[in-house]
Design a protein around this nucleic acid. Structure first.
Length: 405
RNA sequence: GGAGGGGUGGCAGAGCGGUCGAAUGCGGCGGUCUCGAAAACCGUUUCGGGCUCUUGGGUCCGACGAGGGUUCAAAUCCCUCCCCCUCCGCCA
């Protein structure tokens, strides 16, 4: 959530920034709800102080108390309603985007390209990952429905090696490896900003108050929920491996072929908690880590800064790494690296003590390796005979030298 | 799944209807001592919110897992939920 006090102090500034995410109305609604709440709170406090008695009250005092309490009860009901309305408005307001984030809301036309790496291969007739790797979509459809697939044989081993490579590189940098839960409570979903805006994309477990995470960012955000972390321990750097689940409810008919957009995939994530003044440097560092992995996988890519209207509610700034996909003949999103500043930390109540003052930490998350990258790897390393040469970096992690059908 | 026990400040741990926002210990911060440090000793130290004034205070309100209830009055009594621990059963 945003810093309400800061927003009251500079409503125009906040409104302008939030408007770049297309959420000016949500902000206006919040300010109105907050004003209403602030009208009521002093009145309630005043009445409450009048109900205080020291020790046993006299009969006359009791009579007077009765009247005050009746008035208090009515006012408290109003306050509770105002508070509910204000909190509801608060969760609708996104994190203001950083100044360096471009305007616009279209990922394709408004994103700012930062750089490119590698030479996109230009085959006249490139095969796609389904033709090159071993995936079983037909049987998966029978077992699980559309948008699921089995990774089979050498293809599965390449994916596992890629996860292991990312974990290896990150732990060497001091990141702590974590295998987190993938079922979480509503609290973690709200805390990380996935709810309420992304709720449509999340699976809920029937009969339980549990949700399947769309990314381990949710589990990792929850890890230090409600804690006051030791300032000396910051930054806390984690790398988590987990399966991720997404309903892809709004994506009907989009990317229906192959494993590009599926309901379930695996990801190695970076998740960091740090001091506010460190988070922008840390953001660049996380991006660099991801780029190093993609380079080791020898996948041509470009880095873009997503426009304000296309980043998540929690994000202040997001870089995407788009891998070259020969079969699509274009770059496509494979990794996201995001600074959520204090937005998640505020909701999750993760704070640290700085010269006596408690303040929220900053949190960041970023893909290190994800299944889509392995798809890109397979496509980019195809040879004329339809086999795939696996990058040397993956061999020590159990990958075969080649993948062929 | 069954049977018990428990959730209190950064941590440990008292309190079990008003005198309790809360003993005590540890930790933290400041100081005395010291060339310096340790030890010892002294002082200080929960969080959130509103208003307010020379940003550091003043003042009022709220919070003892969460939410309801009883009562003039709840950390303390009752109900619901969540979580943790121990034992038994089951299980990868």
């Amino acid at each position: 959530m945003i810093d309400l006090r800061a927003a009251r102090a500079d409503p125009e500034g906040f409104r302008a920034a939030i408007a770049r995410k297309g959420a000016a109305e949500a902000f206006d609604a919040l300010m109105a709800a907050d004003e209403r709440w602030r009208e009521l709170i002093p009145k309630v406090d005043e009445l409450r102080s009048r109900t205080k008695t020291k020790g046993k009250p006299t009969p006359e005092q009791l009579e007077e108390l009765k009247g005050v309490k009746a008035a208090l009860q009515r006012l408290e009901a109003e306050l509770a309603e105002a508070e509910r309305a204000r909190d509801e408005a608060l969760v609708q307001v996104p994190n203001p985007p950083h100044e360096s984030v471009p305007d616009g809301d279209d990922a394709d036309t408004d994103a700012r390209e930062e750089r490119r790496w590698g030479e996109p291969m230009q085959l006249s007739d490139p095969k796609d990952h389904l033709e090159l790797g071993r995936f079983d979509m037909e049987r998966a459809a029978r077992v699980s429905g559309s948008r699921f697939g089995y990774w089979v044989g050498d293809t599965a081993l390449v994916a596992l090696a890629a996860y292991r490579l990312a974990l290896d590189r990150l732990t060497a940098l001091g990141f702590v490896a974590v295998l987190p839960p993938v079922l979480v409570r509503e609290e973690a979903m709200y805390g990380t900003g996935w709810f309420p805006t992304e709720e449509h994309n999340i699976y809920k477990v029937d009969g339980e108050d549990l949700y399947l995470v769309g990314t381990s960012e949710v589990s990792m955000g929850g890890l230090h929920m409600s804690e006051i972390v030791d300032a000396d321990e910051l930054p806390l750097r984690y790398t988590a491996f987990s399966t991720c689940f997404r309903r892809e409810a709004g994506a009907a008919g989009k990317d229906t072929r192959g494993m590009f957009r599926v309901h379930q995939f695996n990801k190695v994530e970076q998740f960091v908690l740090c001091r506010p003044e460190e988070s922008w440097d840390e953001h660049e560092r996380l991006l660099a880590h991801t780029e190093e992995v993609v380079q080791e996988l020898e996948i041509p890519y470009r880095v873009v800064t997503l426009p304000a209207g296309d980043i998540s509610a929690a994000s202040a700034k997001t870089y995407d790494i788009e891998a070259w996909f020969p079969s699509y003949r274009r770059y496509r999103e494979t990794a996201s690296v995001t600074n959520t500043t204090d937005f998640q930390a505020r909701r999750l109540k993760i704070r640290f003590r700085d010269e006596g003052n408690l303040q929220p930490v900053h949190t960041l998350n970023g893909t290190a390796v994800v299944d889509r990258m392995v798809l890109a790897l397979i496509e980019n390393h195809q040879r004329d005979d339809g086999t795939v040469e696996v990058p040397a970096a993956l061999r020590e992690f159990g990958a075969p030298e080649t993948v062929g059908r």
